[in-house]
Nucleic acid binder design. Structure first.
Lengths: 226, 226
DNA sequence: GCAATGGTTCGGCCACGGCCGAACTGTCCC
DNA sequence: GGGACAGTTCGGCCGTGGCCGAACCATTGC
């Protein structure tokens, strides 16, 4: 199969509205179940199953089995970039000025469910592990004694609950882990509380405030440009 | 029509092998006729006509009438970037290391028919106009007396012939004009003769040699990185 | 064990769209 | 004028593929 034939078959996969819905629903790096994707695609679960099979066959998606669920996510940053490339061409509808500029902002910092992702999320995870406050392993994470004190001092106290305390979540745009679970949620809500970050309308992107730029640098040694 | 529906319809246009052939044939910025594109797409002229109509309707291509020919070219750099994005995902075939890295090289310097395009081609045009050697206008170009002397000294003497002497050619990746016509061809062949540039296998990209880097800087004040 | 739920496979329906042959328009050139 | 050539439009054929209903696994929980 030639280069352009393969290119055409990949593009054909994006060319169906249902599959396009599925892929864009996954663009923020979350992993969603087949049923959630069926809802996003506005088609029945059977039909969705077929689409998902084709997308995973083409290596656009990866799948993880977990109990009776199957979680799908974008297979690589390249896939997200490809989608953005198509968006960039399709986006500027005549008579509409909002070009698709979410790309950069999304990569800089965004929420993933209720925790932080993007460059900021990954940098935060790096900082905490480098300082020996948190130890991440593929299937979970631990907070050290020093880490516990540090986080209490910072004001990020996870709520009690049976939800997993800390786990690494693979970041779509950075392709490296950030911190999810109750700890991730606590960090995000504390940053919001301190007004270090601010939500943006109609987007999962978050912006880093001036106070945040200063705070992240001082407390975590993190410098995010843009 | 929603964002993702439009995205899907754009992607669907790329998803047909014939259209994918057409678009990739135009990726180096040349303008080709419907018949040439029919040949590239391996389908009949009638079928090609339909494809071209859809591609221009979607603003992926622009068309210029010229006599009984219609010349098609990519409508914007975004289209080329989109194609590269899809190539990047489709390209790395398992068991094959040649990823699609032509993109950068093509943008740096390439041939367009028999003259130079890309950053180098545009820089050359800029240099010659800035120095007052050449005056480009939308439908042609003139060489000044000083320019004539300069070009003779450089060794770029256009062949006689009825082909147009000098005309601007819109550069796909830079979206600014470079020099085509007999003059453009003479410049390119002289650069090749001096071994300032070298052709690459199976590609329209050309590489700038060490002598070229030096020569372009000294004679034309051009510095191309990469 | 059984029911409930997530997910897949199968079969059949149907529409969209790619393809070409044939006929038509428009331009160039002798 | 007439012939050659570029390109388009029309009509009809046909395959691909999207969609859902129904039935079928697999896992969880009672």
């Amino acid at each position: 199969m030639s280069d352009i034939t393969r290119m055409a078959s990949i593009a054909a996969l994006l060319g169906d509205p249902a599959r396009a819905n599925i892929l864009t629903a996954l663009m923020d790096g979350r992993a969603l179940t087949a049923k959630e994707l069926a809802f996003a695609a506005h088609v029945s679960p059977q039909t969705t199953s077929g689409h998902l099979a084709r997308l995973t066959d083409a290596d656009l998606l990866t799948v993880e089995k977990q109990g009776r669920h199957r979680y799908f996510r974008l297979a690589s940053p390249l896939v997200g970039q490809m989608l953005e490339g198509v968006m960039a061409v399709a986006g500027p509808e005549p008579g509409r000025t909002t070009a698709w500029r979410g790309g950069d902002a999304l990569r800089t910092a965004r929420t993933c469910y209720d925790h932080l992702a993007g460059r900021l999320g990954v940098a935060l995870a790096d900082s905490l592990t480098a300082a020996g406050h948190v130890a991440l392993s593929p299937d979970g994470g631990e907070v050290t004694d020093r880490g516990h004190a540090f986080l209490c001092d910072f004001g990020a106290v996870p709520l009690a609950g049976k939800r997993i305390f800390c786990r690494p979540c693979l970041d779509w745009s950075e392709r490296r882990p950030h911190i999810a679970g109750r700890l991730g949620a606590a960090l995000a809500s504390r940053c919001l509380e301190l007004a270090w970050i601010a939500r943006q309308r109609d987007s999962r992107a978050v912006s880093i405030t001036a106070a945040g730029a200063h705070g992240f640098a001082e407390r975590f040694g993190i410098h995010i440009d843009g």
